[in-house]
Design a protein around this nucleic acid. Structure first.
Lengths: 180, 180
DNA sequence: ACAGCTTAATTAACTTAGTTCACGAATATA
DNA sequence: TATATTCGTGAACTAAGTTAATTAAGCTGT
């Protein structure tokens, strides 16, 4: 029966997320999502290892690849897209260059800037992956049907945006708390 | 129109995840989920900071609190639940004890074991949080309705399980690759 | 009853993935 | 032209873990 819990103790207040007066299912979901995303990163790291890269290196490499389709790619550009510091991107790109999968040229139009490009060797390395990725990703999202994929695709964008906002709200509330 | 892409280049092969012959939406979703979960951890870290803890410390503390409802809680128990090493849990519990929010007693029935408990002080600290959590979590899951919450709750459990399996599959495939 | 295996927690040393901060060079602006 | 800003970089640091070895306790077969 509907256990009514003191609403001051709930971690959420929206009706949509409370079942029988409890946030238990909400917390379970949160815990599941966290565990899921931890695995997701392990898996990405595993893909990376297949071609001799670390997880972050792989992420940076494919980000350069993707952003290249839209124009020139600089260190800052990659850093912003991945929410990392430029310093870190600099360090890892250096390793990627050493590995021969990335190249860096000064931008003739602005000599402060630098142009990052995946090398031909890097491209062939990346081409090895889909064969394994297909199998792993299929297993990973086995529970997703055509119907809920559309929903999940849309929802993931909302969640991402709202998470950004929620983080800012939290920062604001933390400052308030502090001064009080 | 349906851009048909060479299926060897897709990162997924399940029909449910391919739209117009492309895995673009799937990749977007993945990227969104990754970004979302990164924020999720930042937010958890923010909650933790409100009561003077680091993210992992907070996670361990509430895990002890939750597991305590079911019986005695040991270091290994917490480690397994969070998929961490016992060594790490040992180190962080020591800090939590120093902060006065956790206590540790030897288990009289088995002196190898140890019993972890949140102190009264720890409990009052944790009680400060729901006020802020409600606001932040509501913002975070604004896009979730009563209908898709049920779905998301179920799906999150499936994704978590399948991620475990997918990771094992990847490990297996990586070994195969290696020996080939 | 005790020798040998196993389990629980701990410790120390290390690794990885980042960060912050100061700086130099190039560009933009008043 | 002076000055402020932007971009990338290097060095030093930190946080969040891990691995491997160690200690202490309990279990088991003979």
């Amino acid at each position: 029966m509907g256990q009514i819990i003191d609403s001051d103790k709930l971690t959420v207040s929206s009706d949509a997320l409370i079942v029988d007066g409890s946030d238990l299912q909400f917390r379970e979901m949160l815990h599941n999502l966290l565990a899921f995303s931890a695995r997701l990163e392990q898996i990405r790291g595993g893909f990376a290892n297949l071609i001799g890269l670390s997880g972050p290196q792989y992420t940076i490499l494919i980000t350069v690849q993707q952003l290249s389709q839209l124009g020139d790619v600089g260190v800052g550009h990659v850093a912003e897209h991945l929410a990392l510091t430029p310093a870190f991107v600099t360090k890892e790109t250096k390793n990627l260059i050493k590995l021969g999968v990335l190249e860096k040229q000064p931008d003739p139009n602005d000599l402060r800037r630098v142009k990052l490009k995946v090398t031909a060797f890097g491209e062939t390395k990346l081409q090895c992956l889909p064969k394994v990725q297909q199998q792993v990703n299929d297993q990973l999202f086995k529970a997703v049907t055509q119907e809920n994929f559309a929903m999940l695709h849309a929802l993931s964008a909302d969640l991402r945006n709202d998470a950004e906002k929620a983080l800012n709200l939290l920062k604001f509330l933390a400052l308030e708390e502090e001064s009080a």
